[in-house]
């Protein structure tokens, strides 16, 4: 009898030896930054579609937050909506509906900001995602990636984005970029260098919003 018990215990240990124990380690955490500065505020409808795609793709247990990028964005006040979906699919569906309502309200009343504090928003996003303890952390930046800081806003210090995926969406070309494309390319290269230096595992630029939305999220198992 004792031998049988030992064998059963051993089998149990073998079966579950690879278990993580923490379900959060398998969840996705997505923090989406929506640039509302200047003319980019008009792109809010596109951002709404991206958010709908994220809502349709994320699973129960995942986290999603949408924040606007303003003159100074290192603040919780800029978070438009945030949710960690319930483990039960039915509850998660209800939460997704409520989230969509909030986003609709937000997109209908977007006010353009004077400056664009992407760095501050990134730090805020990293803080939020670290709190959620998500296994895969992705910060989606819906912006032209042109940072403009107001007077007194200090952002020229190293930031920590260790283990994060950074996805730049709809990086539109500015009028000056059209005149000299090197400005656009340099801007992207600079951001990539900066986030990689901060410890980001991946840097993805998605401009084809019709066909390449799958690149925003990685499937479980492909991320290390």
């Amino acid at each position: 009898m004792k031998t049988h018990f030992t064998v059963v215990l051993l089998l149990f240990v073998l079966l579950f030896s690879g278990a993580c124990g923490d379900s959060r380690m398998h969840s996705h955490g997505v923090y989406m930054l929506v640039d509302t500065s200047g003319t980019y505020a008009q792109e809010a409808n596109k951002a709404s579609k991206i958010i709908n795609y994220l809502l349709a793709t994320l699973n129960p247990g995942d986290s999603l937050a949408v924040a606007k990028v303003e003159s100074r964005s290192f603040t919780e006040k800029d978070i438009v909506a945030k949710v960690t979906f319930d483990k039960r699919p039915s509850q998660a569906t209800s939460q997704k509906r409520a989230f969509k309502e909030k986003i609709q309200t937000f997109t209908q009343a977007v006010k353009p900001s004077a400056y664009t504090d992407i760095t501050g928003a990134l730090i805020q996003g990293a803080e939020y995602l670290n709190e959620t303890n998500s296994g895969i952390k992705t910060i989606v930046i819906f912006s032209d990636m042109q940072e403009e800081l107001g007077k007194g806003t200090v952002r020229d210090f190293p930031i920590d984005l260790d283990g994060f995926r950074i996805v730049a969406l709809n990086v539109s070309k500015l009028r000056t970029d059209n005149a000299d494309p090197r400005l656009y390319l340099n801007r992207l290269a600079r951001w990539e260098a900066r986030v990689r230096k901060a410890g980001a595992t991946e840097w993805v630029v998605v401009n084809d919003l019709e066909n390449n939305l799958e690149s925003i999220l990685v499937t479980r198992g492909t991320n290390g």
């Binding site: 278990a19 380690m25 699973n59 129960p60 247990g61 483990k87 699919p89």
Partner: peptide, 17 residues
């Protein structure tokens, strides 16, 4: 399998997969 996730949670994993 799908409705069981409603009872025991859809985001709990025993192993990686």
């Amino acid at each position: 399998a799908l409705p069981m996730s409603e009872m025991v949670g859809a985001s709990d994993y025993l192993t990686n997969s």
